[in-house]
Design a protein around this nucleic acid. Sequence first.
DNA 1: AATGGGAATTGAATCGATTCAAAATTGGGC
DNA 2: GCCCAATTTTGAATCGATTCAATTCCCATT
Lengths: 353, 353
Amino acid sequence: MGEGKGARLSDVAKAAGVSQGTVSNVFNRPQLVRAEVREQVRMAAERLGYGGPDPKGRLLRAGKVNAIGVATSEPLGYFFEDPFARTLMQGITEACDANGTGISLVSAISEEALAWNMHNALVDGFILFCLVGADKLIAHSRERKLPFVALAFGETDDSISIIGIDNVAGARLAARHLVDLGHRRFAVLALEFEDGRAGPADLADVEAAIYPAPRERLRGYFEVLANAGVDVATVPIYNTLNEPETVAAGLEHIFSLKEKPTAILAQSDRIALEAMTWLRRRGYAVPRDVSVVGFDGVPEAALSEPPLTTISQPITELGRRAVNAILNPQAKPVQEYLEIELSVRGSTAAPRS
Amino acid sequence: MGEGKGARLSDVAKAAGVSQGTVSNVFNRPQLVRAEVREQVRMAAERLGYGGPDPKGRLLRAGKVNAIGVATSEPLGYFFEDPFARTLMQGITEACDANGTGISLVSAISEEALAWNMHNALVDGFILFCLVGADKLIAHSRERKLPFVALAFGETDDSISIIGIDNVAGARLAARHLVDLGHRRFAVLALEFEDGRAGPADLADVEAAIYPAPRERLRGYFEVLANAGVDVATVPIYNTLNEPETVAAGLEHIFSLKEKPTAILAQSDRIALEAMTWLRRRGYAVPRDVSVVGFDGVPEAALSEPPLTTISQPITELGRRAVNAILNPQAKPVQEYLEIELSVRGSTAAPRS
DNA sequence: AATGGGAATTGAATCGATTCAAAATTGGGC
DNA sequence: GCCCAATTTTGAATCGATTCAATTCCCATT
């Protein structure tokens, strides 16, 4: 038996004594083929150890991959670790399951890796996690000339499709809640302003921030604080990398200052949750000594002790819509901003007088 | 400008007045092309809006997809929700990042969906999550004639590559720990024995279990219990679906029996964690009233209150090895069984006398 | 026996690139 | 100027399927 490597469709055709087209039909639209011939072809396939048409071949001719790429400029592990990313993926996977679409994870440990991965990903479109590194992600997607949609992109830009929330409005809600409770001394634990930079920041840094989500959220906070008569120039801001170590470092920094805050504005639930852990360990009671408000509304936030007050995004809905945007691409880019809301839970209270 | 849909490599070649081969080289091995020509080609590409070779075309000729498929017979969301799956994915993603390989998630909401997805996935090999539905996953992988490796497969089978642990040994460790503490009244919260079935089970069901992991673990438990003089026929077993509702139903069932257990053997950490929540809500103190021991050793198990005593698998290492097995396929299938260990934490103690 | 029409099958073009042996060009040394 | 070797470029084959217009087959009618 001439076993080269694996049998091809054309080998089966030859063996069964029919044309390639017929074999293709046997596997893809069997009802078009007479039962007798069908059986013949099936047996020939069996005999040759042919397991059905190779998707590589089909792809080229038929065009659709039936998979959508989810891209981030973080390492792949991000999708399984970060609570916000995971919740977003829940929405995305739900919609993909419903549409019979697969998911390809595209990520980057380096800049070239990202470029290469995005240029070579076998997908029908991209969903971009734009919290960090949005510009690169968008540039590569453009080059691929595939439909794409930006998630968690902080900026407005009507040349691309965006599905997200109004960061400024969300941040206002958070700050207003604390102001209404009577707080006047604040600290901000922010997301990255630019690639990999952690540490204290000031107002000038905010305006120069490359990543828009942290910048916009800060604007919302400070708008409300300023209106409430707080001197925002004295509010400490610390850039974290959205993980335990830099959050701890930030709190270390903030609580070593003369004026200790009574309320912490955290730019993500992950930061907020981590902050609560740190505070408890240091003997600060939440919310008695310090109030904490998060941002995102991940499921974990409702289960912490105390449960976290936060700005809830309709995270899974964002994911669902992103998938739809890719699967039914519109002629013009679309921007959808979904409703956020303040979820008041146990981590905030009036400051001790 | 003849703008059909998108320019092809051959269009660029024509426009630049060079051969296809040269254009291909410009994009893939630029050092082979004279700088002058390179520039010409680049400009022609620019002019035509050509963003580089389409991976669909490359794929067919070059053969490698540069992505590995991770398959389960659960819905896609499973990868982002289940703590064991997530931890496993951490190991997998780590190894993939290191090798510049992408990940395609392949899943199933129905049996045909799984078949279709696996037959059409554009991947170089499969990593199979075999906790449930292993037979189907393996059958489809065989048909694709791609390298594949079974993870968390409970059985031994030297016709396929397996990376896993010794379930019986792990279960023995768990049971022995409880016996040594003095427990004599047990209950088992088991994983699914077969597709979608939850509810009480008896010894006959165990032997008939389709899914091997729960069966093997039960064997390990009962071997030790029997040796300690426990009448295993009276130990209640309840099949859960590894999620909150069926775990609660199981405990409801178990604690409505005459003889209440002083120790619970949970076949996964997720079950164990959920069980602890239920017990606390019902006023049973862990470990004072009831001891709980899990299985898996997911990171969350170390953070619960109290921290969970469990059988720790080297989960991320399993993932890493699986990736290596796919990327460097051996002629013969390999079986690797990694070391597990008992992690004694706060959820177990001697029973109240 | 001739006819018509629906069902089944064929054959060749096509998808978009890579590859590599062979041909063409370049440049250095004498 | 000429020759040879090294460097560039070309051209055609190839990867493995799908597609669809054209053809053949089959059978029921007249």
